[in-house]
Design a protein around this nucleic acid. Structure first.
Lengths: 200, 200
DNA sequence: GTCACGAACATACCACCGGTATGGCGGTGG
DNA sequence: CCACCGCCATACCGGTGGTATGTTCGTGAC
């Protein structure tokens, strides 16, 4: 039976993660102290170290929090009822939109590879956004919508391009304009590799 | 007149930068202490703080060191006597090769945006590799080799894709195979946007 | 030659932060 | 009702970035 204490414990842990996401997004990993994270969650460092093994673990929890959110929205779109090509396109737009979230931008895309180490980050990304992008590309190929390409490296190229572009959008003064430009270029490129038989 | 002391000073500064490049590459920015950097250069932290205003400044000096190297090699190729299309292709190969250098990989591409802050990093990149890529793309458009595209965002997409891909290559067990795959995909994409009149 | 001066360092010290050890409070199961 | 233990607070330590101060020695003026 789930006890009252379990509720309390989970609540403080969630508060710590929420606090960590906020502060890591605002000041970065190196710029935020554990005392600040704990203080914002109205506890002390002792509580933090009870729930997490260290600063890295706190970061990874914040990372999972942010990634899960994006993954959820992407999954919903990619498993929709539309045609494969349209699902991919909508997924693309959704991913770009997600990248505009400062938390996802800084935590998951910028700092995570440095803080967690590239290998661990890549492993984690395989279970989140990158994994979905790879899957979407594979689906397009299986459906005969696009020419056969090496899925792993192509999705890696696509992922890198989108992350870089999204950062550009996020920091530009006219987000709408830059966003449209990028979507335009990507769609044009995708249309180039689209199989003639499937196209208009 | 250049004094003996100036020689000494420049020598120790260079030794500090070299030491910083080495250690930042091996252990990352957060993982290396200023004492270590100074020790490897056979001086103390006092000397380091005489030449640099702080840890960030040391990192930026190391960053400039690595970037200048890559920029030099790229400039040589891009300003060669070959046709624009071939120069671009050779530049592409050279850039991918440069990305395999652990120092450039980790320092300039991975940690720099986090350590220097994205805005400052972007500003610096405009004067280094990214600036050259953007210029190369502009040249291709001016020469009528490829379709007109928004240069800024397209080169950003390309740059992001290449960096991401290069990291993938660097960490893969069979670098040759993955490298060839990536070059193949990129060249195929580029050929898609190549103007029919200019192509074969 | 020598002497004062300042650049080029070395040394000593401080504040802060990640991490650990220990103490105490209160919900929970028996 | 009580002993236990999870949950959390407090106290403390080592290391690190940064600063302030001391020391050496090449340099240029006389």
């Amino acid at each position: 039976m789930r006890s009252r204490r379990d509720d309390y414990s989970e609540s403080t842990r969630a508060a710590l993660v929420k606090s960590a996401v906020r502060l890591f997004t605002e000041r970065g990993y190196a710029g935020t102290s554990l005392d600040e994270i704990a203080k914002r969650a109205r506890v002390t460092k002792g509580a933090l170290y009870h729930h997490f093994s260290g600063k890295q673990a706190v970061f990874e929890a914040a990372f999972d929090e942010v990634e899960s959110d994006v993954k959820g929205r992407l999954e919903k779109i990619l498993s929709g009822p539309e045609a494969p090509w349209d699902r991919a396109l909508n997924g693309l737009r959704e991913f770009i939109a997600s990248c505009l979230d400062p938390a996802y931008q800084r935590l998951a895309l910028q700092e995570a590879p440095v803080v967690m180490g590239w290998a661990r980050w890549r492993e984690a990304e395989d279970r989140y956004s990158f994994g979905l992008i790879k899957q979407a590309l594979q689906d397009l190929i299986d459906a005969g919508e696009v020419l056969a390409v090496p899925v792993e490296v192509t999705s890696r190229l696509l992922f890198g391009a989108l992350c870089s572009a999204a950062t550009e959008i996020a920091h530009s003064t006219d987000q709408r304009k830059v966003g449209d430009e990028i979507e335009d270029v990507v769609v044009r490129l995708l249309n180039q590799v689209r199989r003639p038989a499937a196209g208009a």
